[in-house]
C-alpha cells in the first residue's frame, strides 16, 4: 500500500473520487462524511456508499486520528438498490 499513489486510489467509483481528493478536502477543513458528500459527491452515486462508505469513514478516522466510531457514517436514506420509476408506477397500479 505504501508505494501506491493516492491520486490513483479510487475510493468512490460512482463519483470518481480518489484518496488524493479526500486528502485535499481534509486539508481545506472538511472533516465529516456529510461535508465530503456535498462538495465531491462521495457516496451519492448508484451504490449509495455501499461500496465506498466504510473506506471513507476509515480515512476520516485515520487522517484526524479519531476513533472509527467518532468518524460518523453518512445519513442513510432509501433506496438500497435503484428501482425504475415506471416499475414503481406499475406496482402501484396493480
Amino acid at each position: 500500500m505504501d508505494n501506491m499513489n493516492p491520486k490513483e486510489i479510487v475510493i468512490c467509483r460512482c463519483s470518481d473520487v480518489t484518496l488524493a481528493d479526500l486528502f485535499a478536502l481534509f486539508e481545506q477543513g472538511y472533516r465529516t462524511f456529510e461535508e465530503l458528500k456535498r462538495i465531491k459527491r462521495v457516496g451519492m452515486g448508484p451504490c449509495q456508499a455501499n461500496t465506498c462508505g466504510k473506506m471513507v469513514q476509515w480515512e476520516i478516522a485515520k487522517y484526524f486520528d479519531i476513533p472509527l466510531e467518532e468518524a460518523l457514517f453518512h445519513n442513510l436514506r432509501p433506496f438500497t438498490l435503484g428501482i425504475k420509476l415506471k416499475h414503481i408506477k406499475e406496482g402501484s397500479d396493480t
Binding site: 451519492m44 436514506r77 432509501p78 433506496f79 428501482i83 420509476l85 408506477k89 402501484s92
Partner: peptide, 28 residues
C-alpha cells in the same frame, strides 16, 4: 421519506415526461 410520495411522483413523472420513467431512483 414516504412511499406515498414515491408512488405519486412515479405516476406524475411517467405521465408528463414518459422516458424519465425508465430511470432508476437511487435516493429520496
Amino acid at each position: 421519506s414516504s412511499w406515498q410520495f414515491l408512488e405519486a411522483m412515479a405516476k406524475t413523472v411517467s405521465d408528463l415526461l414518459p422516458p424519465v420513467g425508465e430511470l432508476r431512483v437511487i435516493r429520496q
